Amino acid sequence: MDYKSLQIDMDGPVVVVTLSRLGRRNALDEATVEEIGHFFQNPPKEARTAVLRGEGPHFCAGLDLEEHARLQRTPVQFMRMCQRWHWAFDQIQFGGLPVIGALQGAVVGGGLELAAACHTRVADVSTFFALPEGQRAIFTGGGATVRVGRIIGPSRMVDMMLAARTYDAARGMDLGLCHEVVPEGQSFQRAMRIAQAAAKHAPMSNYAIVTAISRINDMSTTDGLFAESLVAGIVQSSPEVAEGLEMFLQKRSKRIEPT
């Protein structure tokens, strides 16, 4: 696919995906959402992990309101557009490739919905989070009620929108919107280190981590425990396990230490 809004670069086993709509603060139009979905549906075979970032000072300013106003979509057209966003972001969350989000500046509206689909989110101190849809006379449509609501809870999401709250990086980490805060300008470097380390994990283990945990969380307790045992049985009996166990038994594996 010929990408116009994404820049794709390989760095060893890590594929770096850069939102490249600098003049629009990386706002998401229909074409960009399609590019995101198609890329993560079929990433490079040599990629073991991915880093998703935005070009310039902002990660993503959300829905491209200029396109939204120009197209004047009907309710059905907008519903179908939302479903394409759901499909595209599902390719990130459930596609099987670990995706590390490198955040800076605006992570708002659809940008927060996009970030919430990433498996690990590193923010620098310039990052701020908001869901300003209420102030724009619209409603979330890219999955926030599911992904963001499950991170911070539905009550806090309602408050976040009604009170027009903007959270800085530190508060965002307290709430789970990001997992780590680093000095300004360093989120990409830190995200790359995480991605490079994760790329050394067994592919089957990484696949289980990023595809099973969220789905199991949607299940009842008994169904979740059964699904966990099923996934564990498949992963633990894969050929990759023998090498990892041998390294551990020979004390050649890295010690577990705080990071």
Results as ranks from 00 to 15, higher is better:
residue 222 T to L: 14
residue 241 V to G: 05
residue 163 A to T: 09
residue 239 P to A: 02
residue 102 A to L: 02
residue 34 E to H: 09
residue 83 Q to I: 00
residue 224 G to A: 14
residue 18 T to N: 00
residue 34 E to N: 10
residue 135 Q to D: 07
residue 95 G to Y: 05
residue 60 C to Q: 08
residue 57 P to R: 05
residue 143 G to D: 06
residue 147 R to Y: 04
residue 119 H to E: 12
residue 24 R to Y: 11
residue 160 M to S: 09
residue 95 G to W: 01
residue 76 V to R: 08
residue 175 L to K: 01
residue 211 T to K: 07
residue 183 P to S: 06
residue 190 R to H: 09
residue 26 N to I: 02
residue 145 T to G: 03
residue 182 V to E: 07
residue 82 C to S: 14
residue 93 Q to I: 15
residue 130 A to W: 01
residue 225 L to K: 06
residue 32 T to N: 13
residue 112 L to T: 05
residue 221 T to Q: 15
residue 242 A to S: 11
residue 124 D to E: 06
residue 229 S to G: 12
residue 195 A to D: 06
residue 45 K to Q: 12
residue 114 L to H: 00
residue 15 V to C: 08
residue 197 A to T: 13
residue 127 T to M: 10
residue 143 G to P: 07
residue 84 R to A: 06
residue 173 M to H: 11
residue 70 R to Y: 10
residue 201 H to T: 13
residue 92 I to W: 07
residue 203 P to H: 05
residue 150 R to G: 10
residue 182 V to Y: 04
residue 164 A to T: 01
residue 53 R to F: 05
residue 101 G to M: 04
residue 175 L to E: 06
residue 21 R to S: 00
residue 135 Q to R: 11
residue 90 D to K: 11
residue 218 D to G: 07
residue 206 N to A: 15
residue 60 C to A: 12
residue 214 S to R: 13
residue 28 L to G: 00
residue 83 Q to S: 02
residue 145 T to N: 08
residue 68 H to Y: 15
residue 168 D to N: 15
residue 47 A to F: 05
residue 201 H to Y: 15
residue 140 T to E: 12
residue 231 V to N: 06
residue 189 Q to I: 10
residue 55 E to I: 15
residue 55 E to M: 13
residue 169 A to M: 00
residue 123 A to V: 09
residue 135 Q to W: 09
residue 129 F to P: 00
residue 59 F to T: 02
residue 124 D to H: 02
residue 49 T to M: 02
residue 82 C to P: 01
residue 183 P to R: 06
residue 246 E to G: 04
residue 237 S to M: 11
residue 28 L to S: 02
residue 99 V to F: 02
residue 121 R to N: 00
residue 137 A to W: 11
